[in-house]
Amino acid sequence: MSALHINEIQKYFGALLVLDGVSLDIAQSEVVAVIGRSGSGKSTMLRCINGLEKIQAGSIEVAGHRIGPQGGDLRSLRKEVGMVFQSYNLFPHLTVLENVTLAPKVVKGVGREEAEAIAHDVLRRVGLAEKSGAYSDELSGGQQQRVAIARSLAMQPKVMLFDEVTSALDPELTGEVLKTMEELADAGMTMVLVTHEMGFARQVADRTVFMHKGKVWEQGPSEELFSYPQTPELRNFIAPNLK
């Protein structure tokens, strides 16, 4: 059974059709990279998956929770789907530890001690165990993004969504975040990542999806897709990136 099932979703912003019948099936522990030009609907697709945007047709299923045009049990679905944003979005009034323990405490009702044990565990996984008392403005961008990943991990999601999580970082800081994501992938996390890091997609993702004009234009095992692009659109898209 697939971990994430996206069935023929359509998304309009006003009269603008942004997702035009997108379908994707993502298996347990699969890592899927999503690439495509600016405006092709990549972010919108991720945001639809955890219900930050309403869809107008189709359905999305994760871990037995289903959302459709009529909505659905968004909160149950979001407990299973972690999301990491380009701009980190840490809560600035809370320490790193409080950022990470907040959702387990208030959403799952986990006690303080257990929440802190979970937090220390996930912070160790992203290599920031010693920063638990810091505030976000005392961290580098790369560290903030790793805390954001830890915060999401603390909810023990079944699927994690990453939207260009290294795009706001200085080049010398992208490495540490990509390494954290690679370790997650190795640990068997099911991941969907929108990325402009073609090298990373090719190396880490089992499958790469090329989106164009709100559609899944072309997809396949990453190595194959990058080596033998079938459509002229994908060829045009990756050609400058290969130089």
Partner: peptide
């Protein structure tokens, strides 16, 4: 900020 909270299931 609000979306980050919602995405965590709040």
């Amino acid at each position: 900020q609000i979306e980050a909270g919602l995405a965590l299931g709040m």
